[in-house]
Amino acid sequence: MNIQAVSRHTGGSVPEVGQPHTRNETACHDLSIRVRDLSLWYGDSQALKGLDIDLFQKNITALIGPSGCGKSTFLRCLNRMNDLIPGVRIEGLVEMDGRDVNQVKMDEVALRRRVGMVFQKPNPFPKSIYENIAYAPRMHDLVSRKPEQDELVEKALRDAGLWEEVKDKLHQPGTSLSGGQQQRLCIARAIAVQPDVILMDEPTSALDPISTATIEDLMDRLKKQFTIITVTHNMQQAARVADYTAFFHLGEIIEYNDTNTMFANPATRKAEDYITGRYG
C-alpha cells in the first residue's frame, strides 16, 4: 500500500482523504476520530484550513510542525477546549463514535469525559496527590465506596508509573512533587476517569531529559489501553514514540504518514526540509 500524498495543496492526487500515506501493518486500525474539512478562525484570521485526518485507536499519533502551525489548536478541537476562547469559529466535521462533536446538541462535558487532556505545563490541582486523582472519578460516579476509590487511585498511579514514588505521601499537596512527577500525576489524573482518547499538548516540553524519557516510556505502555494524540516540538520524540505522524504547516496538514515512512522517506519537500532541520 503506497498511496500518494494526502494534501491537495501539494498537488498529489487524493484517493481517500485523511488516510495516512502508508499504514503500519502491525498496528490495530480501528478508527477513533474522523476529521473532515475542519477550519477554525480566531476572529478574522484562519488558523486551520480544511483539515482531513483519520486518527486510529490504541495508537500514538504525533502532530509535528513549526510553531504557530495550528497543531495545538487542532488538538484542542478534539475535546472542544477552544470553546473557552472568545471569538473562535469552527466549521467542518470532527466525528467520534458516530457523532459530530461540534454540534450544539453535543455535551462538551461528556466529550471531555471521553477525551482527556494533558497540558504543556503540569497543572496539578491545589489538593493532595490522592485528591488530584480521586476527585474526577468521584464526581463522575465511577467509584462509590472508599476502598474502591483507594484501589482506583493506586491503579491510576501504577499505570502512570508514579505509585512507588508517592505511595507514602499520598496526602501531601500535588504541587510538592517535582516537575516530571507532577506531569505523571496529571497523566494519572487523566487516565483515572478511563477516557478513550488522551490528548497531550507538548507534555514534555517543560521537563528535563530524564523525566521526558520516563514519560515517553509511559506513553508507550498507555497506548495499549488508550488512543494517544500528542503534539510535540521534538522530532526525535515523534520518531521514538509515535505510530503515525502528521506534519502541520500554516494551518494545513502537509503530510500524514506511518512514522517510519515519514522520517525515512518523506513524501513532500516541506516535510523533508522540516525533518532534516532545514527550518522550523
Partner: peptide, 17 residues
C-alpha cells in the same frame, strides 16, 4: 468498554443543573 455519549450525558444532567 467505555460509556457512550448518551449514557454520559444522562448522568450529567443533574450536574449541569
Amino acid at each position: 468498554m467505555s460509556q457512550t455519549f448518551d449514557e454520559i450525558s444522562a448522568q450529567l444532567r443533574r450536574r449541569h443543573r
